[in-house]
Design a protein around this nucleic acid. Structure first.
Lengths: 208, 208
DNA sequence: GTTTACATACAATCATGTTTGTATATAATA
DNA sequence: TATTATATACAAACATGATTGTATGTAAAC
């Protein structure tokens, strides 16, 4: 087949990434061969190997399409320094993430793949470490927000922003995991927002 | 080779399970071949296929060695009805689980495999569903304990046992995940007990 | 004309499930 | 109690298919 224009090539590249995501989600990363991805994207393995060195490079490309926006989302929440209501900022952040999972099938698939359809061994161990690094970054931002909430008197007395940040991170991590695992929408997915509000409610200063 | 006695066969079987666990932990479930397991157990594939139909049956056998005791542990905590201090029962349960992970390398490996070294697709999707079922069971027991804590006046006023149970489950689920992922003991593992106490502390009625 | 963007062909492993072979533990029988 | 029959606990061989990376070919864009 003939050479394509640069824009065409970019389209092919994205098609391959999309195909990879879909096949990963259906068959798991390990059981997915380059041929599976190629035929699903309606190209040959040659095209895949042209755009990506191997499977893990493709995996990284796919991951970035969900995680770069997520980082931006975290930063946006934390950077809003003039917010009058830091506690609500946290709550909104959690709810928005769940919203995104509900509405964006691609993002949802990427989370699913990374949480229950990928084995973090060999070349993939680095991915796990990057996730952990991101978690620490996320915890930092949560701590910042809780500190601001404390300054504004939103928190119950005696609560420590550091502890709250860690606790909220574990809560949210657990929530995402349950959300993904409960793929038949048996309840958890509908309950998510309620759970978030209750979680934040636990910290909120009682209105006298 | 010759036929072994029943006890010898049982030993061989357990050796194969142990070998499977070790190789799964090192290479991930998908990348592990029956031959890998066999040679690690110092038997041939024939022995493995004699004792187990295929890889997933072996996986189930391995899993049960960690999860059956875990269920018992949950039941033991919830059945202790005369406990004067249900909140501490919960706290102890969390801490004991972490203790087990710290001291029992086999259990630790099984958790690791199930959380980050296994892809839940095809024959493995059933495993995920079973995990979710177990989670719901766990949440029920937590709810029971929180109800007892409420009756004994241990909880802060206005807290709902149902909400607390879900929140604690998410916390614990997130904690286990972080514990497993933080394999280089960079902090999370040491912090676990502190986090548990703080989490429970959030619910505890302030001593007047 | 050269580089790009692929398709096609090649070579080399590797894994799976099954089948067959076999020595012996164990139960049945005499 | 000694003998025999059979099921057991594997090892070894077989047949088949899948996957990977690379190497080569090619037509069109630049």
């Amino acid at each position: 087949m003939a050479r394509k224009t640069k824009e065409d090539a970019a389209i092919t590249r994205q098609r391959i990434i999309d195909a990879a995501r879909e096949v990963f989600a259906a068959r798991g990363v390990s059981r997915t061969s380059i041929e599976h991805i190629a035929s699903h994207a309606e190209v040959t393995r040659g095209a895949v190997y042209w755009h990506f060195k191997n499977k893990i490079e493709l995996f990284y490309a796919m991951r970035d399409q969900a995680f770069l926006p997520f980082i931006d989302h975290i930063d946006a929440a934390a950077l809003n320094e003039e917010s009058e209501d830091p506690l609500s900022t946290i709550e909104q952040f959690f709810e928005n993430t769940i919203q995104t999972l509900n509405h964006d099938a691609a993002i949802r698939e990427i989370y699913e793949i990374m949480m229950v359809k990928c084995e973090y061994v060999d070349e993939f161990t680095a991915v796990l470490q990057q996730i952990v690094t991101n978690c620490h970054y996320f915890i930092e931002k949560l701590q910042l927000l809780y500190e601001r909430a404390q300054q504004k008197g939103q928190l119950n007395i005696g609560l420590d922003p550091v502890a709250l940040a860690l606790d909220s991170h574990l809560f949210f991590s657990g929530l995402l995991h349950m959300w993904v695992k409960d793929s038949r929408a048996e309840g958890f997915r509908q309950q998510a927002n309620t759970l978030i509000r209750q979680h934040i409610g636990l910290r909120k200063r009682a209105i006298p």
